[in-house]
C-alpha cells in the first residue's frame, strides 16, 4: 500500500522555503557522518534487480530510465540521470542521505521505503557504473540481537534517557556515537519526538519528552527507540510508558444536536414537533367525534 508513483513530474519541496534558483546539482550539504555511511547489503546483480523494481515504482517518473537521459525536463532543477558523472561522483552515504531527506521537489523516502530497499535502489544505480567498487559497511546484522536498549523516564526534567549496550561474549559494550531516534506510535505511523541524536561515550542519549503529548485514556504511549549503529546495524525497541497526557475526549456524537440522530435531537424541537402534531390531531379527532354526534343526533330525534 505504501507504494508511491511519481508519474507526474511536478514534485514539490517540503520546506517550501528553499529558493530553487539556488539549486545546483552538486551542492547537497551532506553531513560528514552521513557521507561515510555504507550499505551492509552487497550490491550484486540480485540486489540491483530488486532495486530496479523499486526504482521503477518510485523514482523513474522523474529521473527517467538510467542511462537514457530521459528524466523529466520540465522540472526545475531537472532531475539528473542517475548514471551521469555528477551522480557517479556521489558517495553511497551521500546518495543514501539524499534518499532519506529529499529536498525541494524530491520527497523524502525515509518513512516510505525500508532501509534495505533504499540501499537496493543505490545498488541498481551503481550497476550502471563499471568503475564502482563497493565499500561494504562493517555492520553485522547478526549482531543486532545482542543489543539491549534501556529506556528510563525522568519525570522531573521530562526526559527520556536511553542506554544502548551490546551483550558481547567479551562483556558489555556500550554503543558509542550511534544514531538514535525516539518515536511514538500514532494511528497512521510513527511520530518522531525530539531530534535524531547520537549516543555518548557511555552509550547514553537523552531525549526531551514533550509534556503535552496525548496518550491513551490513562496516559499510556508506545515509544520506539531506533538505533542505527555502524557495527550492530538498525535496532528498534518498543515499550509502553504511562507518561503522556491522559486523553479521553468524549465521542463527537455524545451531545444532542440538530445533526445528531433522532434519539439525540434537541429536546425543545421534539417537544415543539410533538405538541404541534398532538394539538392538531386532537382538534381533528374532536371534529370527527362531532361528526359522529351529528350523525347520531338525527337518529335520536327520530327515536
Amino acid at each position: 500500500m505504501y507504494r508511491i508513483k511519481f508519474k507526474i513530474a511536478i514534485i514539490l519541496g517540503f520546506t517550501g522555503l528553499i529558493n530553487f534558483q539556488s539549486f545546483a546539482q552538486n551542492n547537497w550539504d551532506v553531513p560528514a557522518d552521513k557521507k561515510s555511511k555504507n550499505s551492509n547489503i552487497e550490491f550484486n546483480s540480485g540486489t540491483a534487480k530488486e532495486g530496479e523494481g523499486i526504482y521503477n515504482t518510485n523514482c523513474k517518473s522523474c529521473h527517467g530510465d538510467i542511462g537514457k537521459n530521459n528524466s523529466l525536463q520540465s522540472l526545475k532543477p531537472v532531475p539528473p540521470d542517475l548514471s551521469s558523472a555528477q551522480s557517479k561522483a556521489l558517495l553511497d552515504g551521500e546518495l543514501f542521505h539524499i534518499l532519506n531527506v529529499g529536498r525541494g521537489l524530491m520527497p523524502s523516502f525515509k518513512e516510505v521505503l525500508p532501509e534495505s530497499d533504499r540501499w537496493k535502489v543505490i545498488a541498481y544505480m551503481r550497476s550502471y557504473d563499471k568503475d564502482y567498487v563497493q565499500i561494504i559497511s562493517k555492520t553485522d546484522p547478526a549482531k543486532a540481537n545482542l543489543v539491549k536498549i534501556k529506556m528510563v523516564f525522568d519525570s522531573i526534567n521530562s526526559k527520556l534517557n536511553v542506554e544502548v549496550v551490546a551483550n558481547e561474549k567479551a562483556g558489555i559494550v556500550k554503543l558509542k556515537n550511534a544514531e538514535i531516534a525516539l518515536f511514538v506510535t500514532r494511528h497512521f505511523g510513527k511520530m518522531q519526538l525530539d531530534k535524531t541524536l547520537r549516543t555518548d561515550n557511555n552509550g547514553n542519549a537523552s531525549f526531551d519528552f514533550p509534556k503535552d503529548l496525548p496518550g491513551d485514556k490513562v496516559g499510556n504511549v508506545e515509544l520506539i527507540v531506533r538505533v542505527n549503529d555502524e557495527i550492530y546495524g538498525e535496532i528498534e525497541s518498543i515499550s509502553k510508558f504511562k507518561i503522556a497526557v491522559p486523553t479521553d475526549k468524549p465521542s463527537l456524537t455524545e451531545k444532542r444536536a440538530m445533526w445528531n440522530v433522532l434519539a439525540k435531537a434537541p429536546i425543545w424541537l421534539i417537544l415543539l414537533y410533538l405538541s404541534g402534531v398532538l394539538l392538531a390531531t386532537g382538534v381533528i379527532l374532536y371534529i370527527i367525534y362531532n361528526l359522529y354526534k351529528l350523525s347520531k343526533s338525527n337518529n335520536n330525534l327520530k327515536n
Binding site: 505504501y2 508511491i4 517540503f14 529529499g102 520527497p107 523524502s108 523516502f109 525515509k110 518513512e111 516510505v112 500514532r186 497512521f188 505511523g189 510513527k190 511520530m191 518522531q192
Partner: peptide
Amino acid sequence: VTNGTTKET
C-alpha cells in the same frame, strides 16, 4: 497527522 507522500508523522 501523517503525510501521505512521505509517511512522516
